[in-house]
């Protein structure tokens, strides 16, 4: 069962990566739609063009007038005064290192949301529920809630609204269940 969930988090990791290629494919949207249905979330036709999603992703997460609605980095939310590479980043790095892992490549900070979701997928795949419980409780679940509210408050495109709600749903479930499991 955890391997199924692992795939869900891999999907979410890709969903929060910049739209281009695979995560714009009809198959990808179909999977999102199926998961949404599982969670009881409404979806439309999900017939989205690449330009609209790219513009929206840029506005929500990269650069935008007035500042991006919700920077997808833990550091911004965890006692970091809205800055990158602060406490939230150190926490993420610490968890990866406790799992014996480091980032494969790329220049994204370790606390970039897709990386944290992918890390969740790794822990699920390994069945390391003890570390997962702590990772969620002390880190990802904590900041994701604020992140989710900020995305929702910014009048997001329905696709990203769905993605944050979907992610929150799975994080809540996971936290409840893993936390119960390990305490």
């Amino acid at each position: 069962m955890t391997s199924q969930l692992s795939s869900v988090f891999k999907l979410l990791a890709d969903g929060f990566s910049y739209p281009g290629g695979e995560n714009l494919s009809p198959e990808f949207f179909k999977a999102v739609k199926e998961l949404a249905r599982d969670c009881g979330l409404q979806t439309g036709t999900m017939d989205y063009g690449s330009q609209e999603l790219q513009e929206e992703y840029t506005r929500l997460f990269i650069n935008a007038p007035g500042g991006v609605a919700a920077p997808p980095y833990a550091s911004v939310y965890v006692a970091g005064q809205g800055l990158l590479m602060q406490e939230g980043h150190a926490q993420a790095q610490e968890f990866y290192s406790r799992a014996g892992l480091q980032l494969a490549d790329g220049q994204e900070p370790a606390d970039f949301l897709p990386l944290e979701l992918a890390f969740t997928a790794v822990l699920l795949e390994r069945g390391d529920l003890v570390l997962l419980s702590e990772f969620l409780e002390k880190h990802l679940w904590r900041w994701f809630q604020v992140f989710e509210r900020r995305v929702e408050a910014s009048g997001p495109h329905p696709y990203y609204s769905l993605l944050v709600r979907l992610t929150l749903f799975y994080l809540n479930k996971l936290k409840e269940e893993v936390f119960d499991e390990t305490t």
Partner: peptide, 10 residues
């Protein structure tokens, strides 16, 4: 899905 490919052993 890319997922786990984002990490490698430390």
């Amino acid at each position: 899905l890319k997922g786990t490919g984002m990490f490698r052993p430390a």
